[in-house]
Computed example of a mutant assay.
Amino acid sequence: MTGLTLTIDSTRWHDHLRALADRVPGLVPVAKGNGYGFGLPRLAEETKRLGLKTLAVGTPAEAAAIREHFDGDVVILLPWEANDPHAVEQARDPRVIVTVSRLTDLEILANLGGDRPRVLIEVLTSMRRHGLEEEDLPAVATWREHLDIEGWTIHLPMRGDKDHNRVEADQLGRAALDVVDAPLWFSHLPTNDYLAMASRLGENRARLRMGTTLWLGEPSALKTTATVLDVHPIKRGERVGYWQRPAQTDGYVVVVSGGTANGIGLEAPTSAKTLKSRAVSFATGALEAAGRALSPYTILGEKRWFAEPPHMQSSLLILPSKVDPPNVGDELPVDVRNTIATFDQVLFV
């Protein structure tokens, strides 16, 4: 089978997962979106294999997708919505823990009827995304007799200041515990800071949600390759592809597997914090505007230029004539972001 392939060194990857699970008490794996390239069912099964009893997903639909693959508790990270019938149904499921970020939703959940819903109360952090303001936290105590409050969730930003998240986590954690004594659940708290806080709080009083660091934290265990589908010689000035751009030099058009359907050529915006990174972004943008963009495919140790934007399931690369072209069927290394990639096959070796 040809296509975009993720090959996993099974021993190395599983050793990494086990080491983290053993090191981090209260670890809660996160499986959301595309399942970090592995797929949601696979991550649900790996969580069960690690012996962990709680798994976090992003949405109600993702909770439904992993239900048959995981028999523990499922946390839905997206704030609960009273107008979503699936979310309402899952709030009644004894295996599901919903995240609440508005006081009005606490009241609605408390009056759903049946068993008491299990909830995590989200505290607003400097991310300014979801959650209750610190001054609103005392109102949560009103509903503690009507809801099973599984804990407080504190979703921290990702930033360069190594002390910021530790200080913010401590401040908001203390404010929350003053209202309801329940476990503190963290995201993006450095592992060493989390371990220190978990030790202070006591056994089973802290949780650390982890996605990227868990699933993608051993890059040497993961290899992505694409298949060479065709190779065509080309002369300078001959036109190429959908957009019929003229070749700038003699060489080859190399057709490779992987396109926009696989996430090739798609990229999340970068922070571009430094002057150098901004200059690189500006220069790259100018090249793309002129019809030139460096591809993530490597041939003979170098990234090669796209001939034009990727197609849906394949891409056209330009190779200069001084370079020996690959053969049809060869596998080429390709750099992808697993969080947006869709692989044609995932192989464990």
Rank of each mutant, 00 (worst) to 15 (best):
I108F: 13
Q90N: 01
V336C: 01
A169I: 00
A279K: 13
G251K: 01
S126W: 02
V24Q: 06
I264V: 14
W152F: 04
A61C: 01
H69D: 06
A82L: 09
K32Y: 04
P310G: 02
V74S: 03
P117A: 03
W152G: 03
H311P: 03
D344C: 09
D163R: 14
L332G: 02
G329M: 05
K162P: 09
G265K: 01
L78V: 10
E168Q: 14
V334K: 01
T191Y: 06
A44F: 06
P219Q: 11
D250N: 14
A169V: 03
E238A: 15
T99Q: 08
I149G: 03
E46G: 02
P219W: 11
S321G: 01
R102L: 10
P310D: 08
V256Y: 06
E46T: 03
N204A: 15
A176F: 04
V179K: 08
T59R: 13
L216I: 05
E302M: 13
G285H: 12
A307H: 07
V280C: 05
D193H: 15
G263A: 08
V30F: 03
S126V: 02
A272H: 14
L103V: 09
V167C: 05
V231Y: 06
I299S: 03
G151F: 06
E46A: 11
V100C: 03
G211C: 06
V119G: 02
H155Y: 10
R166Y: 05
T342D: 08
T284G: 07
G35K: 07
T284N: 15
H311Q: 12
Y242R: 15
H311G: 13
D335G: 04
G202A: 10
L20T: 04
E150S: 10
T213N: 15
Q244C: 02
L332H: 01
E62R: 01
Y194E: 08
V30A: 08
H146N: 12
D148Y: 00
F348Y: 15
L316V: 08
K53I: 03
G51N: 10
L120D: 06
K53F: 01
M127E: 14
L317P: 03
D161I: 09
A290C: 11
G285W: 08
V328W: 00
L229Y: 00
L147Y: 05
V119A: 00
D344Q: 06
T224Q: 01
T339N: 12
F348V: 08
L189A: 07
P246I: 10
S271E: 14
G51K: 09
R42P: 02
P309E: 11
L43W: 01
S10Q: 15
V346Q: 02
E238H: 13
Q90A: 10
W215Q: 04
E150M: 15
D161Y: 04
L4G: 03
E331F: 06
V88E: 05
P94G: 11
H86Y: 00
V140H: 04
A206E: 07
I340E: 08
T284W: 04
I318H: 06
W143H: 11
V346L: 10
L172G: 05
V323E: 04
A91G: 02
Q345L: 06
